[in-house]
Nucleic acid binder design. Structure first.
Lengths: 187, 187
DNA sequence: AAGTAGATAGACCGGTCGGTCTATCACTGG
DNA sequence: CCAGTGATAGACCGACCGGTCTATCTACTT
């Protein structure tokens, strides 16, 4: 009957920052994060050096989770690349329909960041590049004649779903793009 | 040889806020806006009551301009609805390629606004609704069998172009979505 | 048991936030 | 000529921003 062994300050900071920056944007104050994490002010600067690095680290962590989610989404479609990509958009429909969905963290962060010097900036771009590469790998595997352009188009559609569903919750964006996904795949 | 008759404080505030909120987001400080507009602090609160209303008013003003731009884009395609919609995306390519393009002001504002109570919130939704209606009108005119869904899909594509071109400048997003636009139109 | 490293609370720093206020100035119409 | 109106500059307000600092406490090491 041991206590749940609450995580250390570093992990609590990451978790709190992950939630708060998603709900309120990366402009949330450090005070709010510290309060939510129940962590001493000093611990933040000890572990991350400052708010900017904490934000970047949060995005690094969520990017890993999200990329795993994409990979799982593909795998849920089986072995055939076309089915795998269609399955990815099916999982996207579930994801955007979940309580608390508030859009794409990375796109929101990108438009909030003032300067490209912010350490989170590169994290965002690299995440998008890796997702693009995942899409491209499937298109290569299915022998798509225009794999690079098609991969970019699929990413457009993924991002469009994330953005529009945030602006108009309940729209069913993922279902609406289905025919467009098929159009890309069958080109 | 009269002086250019510089606009009054209200118009200077709107112009400065329009530029600064686009370049730095709606979170720009009022001090920066006042300095740029060369207007007394008091004038802002006299004319707009506060920053939130100023931001909302800026979006109202730019929405009118942008909707006119969409209408002009359609008109540049002539009379036939299909050609008009394709022309709209051609104009979009020019627009996103312009120096100083920084993405979609409304999507960025939407993700920055903390609460739906912000007066700018409704302005954003109404703007998107009006653009959607413009697209839908063309699809109705061309007798598209699924006009409503197709209009939403076209708006997805418009927004995707605006978002992606902001994240990856020089990508040529508008050109890349062309085949998808045609797929929507020919469905 | 003593020493040490890390976490704690919270005061404190200069700077900026949005917003209010006073006082002065320029222009207008009676 | 003078009153009224609206714009001006800028001091000022409390709140909050990100960040530093001191001091205390806890837990693990040896």
């Amino acid at each position: 009957m041991t206590a749940p062994a609450r995580p250390g300050p570093r992990d609590r900071l990451l978790a709190a920052a992950r939630d708060l920056t998603y709900r309120h944007g990366v402009s949330v104050g450090v005070d709010a994060i510290l309060k939510e994490a129940q962590v001493a002010r000093r611990s933040l600067y000890q572990h991350f050096g400052g708010k900017d690095e904490l934000v970047a680290e949060v995005l690094r962590a969520t990017a890993a989770v999200d990329e795993r989610r994409y990979a799982d989404g593909l795998d849920s479609g089986g072995d055939e690349p076309r089915a795998r990509l269609l399955a990815l958009f099916d999982r996207l429909a579930e994801f955007t329909g979940r309580e608390g969905f508030r859009g794409c963290r990375y796109i929101a962060a990108h438009s909030s960041l003032t300067s490209p010097e912010h350490p989170a900036y590169a994290v965002i771009i690299e995440h998008k590049d890796r997702v693009l590469a995942m899409l491209r790998a499937e298109l290569d595997a299915m022998g798509h004649p225009e794999a690079e352009a098609a991969a970019i188009r699929l990413q457009f559609l993924v991002d469009a779903v994330l953005v529009e569903e945030a602006v108009r919750p309940g729209l069913g964006a993922a279902g609406l793009v289905r025919p467009l996904v098929e159009a890309v795949l069958d080109a």
